[in-house]
């Protein structure tokens, strides 16, 4: 976690709702946060460079684009093999996210999570089979969690305090 200025926080907060669909969107953001258009652009450049903003652009909803089979695939990878496996997984173009998370044996033995978005269930399962085979994971416990209903999906709200 890094400290960021209150101006940056305001800019990021304004951006959570999306850029105004107007000819001079940065000027409008500037008006909301009390900064000039040039300042807003300069701050955004800096935040991108620092990696606080990972990307700036159109944020799609995969499900609405026919990517209805969104599966979270979880793996119980031995700790010593895990870093290498995480890197290998992330090289497959059908893996859209890959994280190591805390595990809780025995109720939750899985430590490596990857997301696969596919146009149908069949394709996703073939991709999982491909991962198991290519990475030599035939003996490793795993589970495929297809998504059902979406109860809530929106841009994150940052900086809310309890």
């Amino acid at each position: 976690m890094i400290e960021i200025s209150s101006l940056d926080q305001k800019i990021l907060q304004a951006l959570q709702q999306g850029l105004p669909l107007a000819s001079r969107p940065y000027e409008e953001i500037g008006r909301q946060v009390g900064a000039s258009e040039a300042e807003v652009i300069a701050r955004l450049e800096q935040l991108l460079e620092q990696g606080v903003i990972r990307r700036l652009g159109i944020v799609t909803k995969h499900r609405q684009l026919g990517y209805t089979s969104n599966a979270m695939v979880v793996w119980d990878i031995p700790d010593d093999l895990e870093p290498e496996m995480g890197k290998r997984f992330s090289e497959f173009d059908f893996v859209t996210l890959c994280y190591r998370r805390k595990r809780y044996r025995p109720k939750w033995p899985y430590n490596l999570f990857c997301m696969i978005h596919g146009q149908d269930r069949e394709t996703v399962l073939q991709q999982v089979a491909h991962l198991r085979k290519t990475c030599g994971l035939e003996q490793v416990a795993y589970d495929v969690l297809f998504s059902g209903q979406c109860f809530k999906q929106r841009g994150a709200h940052y900086f809310k305090t309890a």
Binding site: L15, L19, R54, R55, L56, V59, T60, L65, Y158
Partner: peptide, 11 residues
């Protein structure tokens, strides 16, 4: 509903 917004994805 195809896109949620044009904006920033934070790390």
């Amino acid at each position: 509903g195809i896109i949620s917004r044009t904006g920033a994805v934070l790390r």
